[in-house]
């Protein structure tokens, strides 16, 4: 009898195998969608810290339990930095490819900081549908630099500060810019 069901089991297994990577990569942005930025940039830096890299980072931080706990649940940290020769070397439209990915699928902008001199920073959270979050994205747009940070996994925003001053992450000074927060879901 069970042999009759084998094709069904095989199909179910196959679907699980296909779906698993997609689930694991939920919230991962296609940072390569900024072809316009890459073409104009004088330098492009990619930082990828996924499975093995994060496990190693957690071991390196084993003497710092707070910071270790912060990154243990994460599945990936992806950073892309575009540097430009001149201020204003890019247009806002060059970021459309990224912004389009942040509109649907549970991403909501929680913070927007604008400064005439220092540029603009936007922070997005990915809701997990259970009251928590499953990722965080930061867009930092300075006159000569654009940085995209895509972090996957549950993030306790209140504990983010525990990473300050560790692993090369600078200590944050008091912001001297006007803060303009928007309601979750109210991006753009």
């Amino acid at each position: 009898m069970i042999t009759n069901r084998l094709p069904s089991f095989a199909c179910a297994g196959l679907i699980c195998l296909v779906a698993l990577p997609a689930f694991a990569q939920q919230g991962r942005l296609k940072l390569d969608a900024c072809a316009g930025l890459a073409a104009k940039a004088s330098n492009v830096v990619d930082i990828t810290l996924d499975g093995p890299g994060l496990r190693m980072a957690a071991r390196i931080l084993e003497k710092d339990p707070e910071a270790q706990a912060m990154i243990q649940g994460l599945t990936g940290i992806f950073v892309k930095v575009f540097e430009f020769d001149k201020p204003g070397g890019y247009a806002a439209s060059d970021l459309e490819g990224i912004r389009a990915q942040l509109q649907p699928g549970g991403w909501s902008r929680i913070t927007q900081v604008k400064s005439r001199r220092e540029g603009e920073v936007e922070i997005y959270l990915l809701e997990d549908g259970k009251g928590g979050n499953a990722g965080l994205t930061v867009l930092a747009m300075e006159p000569r630099e654009v940085a995209l940070v895509n972090i996957l996994g549950p993030i306790d925003v209140a504990k983010l500060g525990s990473l300050e001053g560790k692993m090369g992450i600078p200590r944050l000074s008091e912001p001297k810019v006007t803060k303009q927060a928007t309601k979750p879901g109210g991006a753009k």
Binding site: A41, S42, N43, V44, V45, D46, I47, T48, L49, D50, G51, P52, G53, M56, R59, I60
Partner: peptide, 28 residues
């Protein structure tokens, strides 16, 4: 196969840098 560059840098002038970090037998 699971090792990917931790950092990849590419400049318009063609300069390129890749940094790999991995563990093998408890060594980094």
């Amino acid at each position: 196969t699971e090792v990917t560059p931790l950092l990849r840098s590419l400049s318009r002038t063609g300069e390129r840098c890749s940094i790999y970090l991995w563990e093998r037998e408890k060594r980094t």
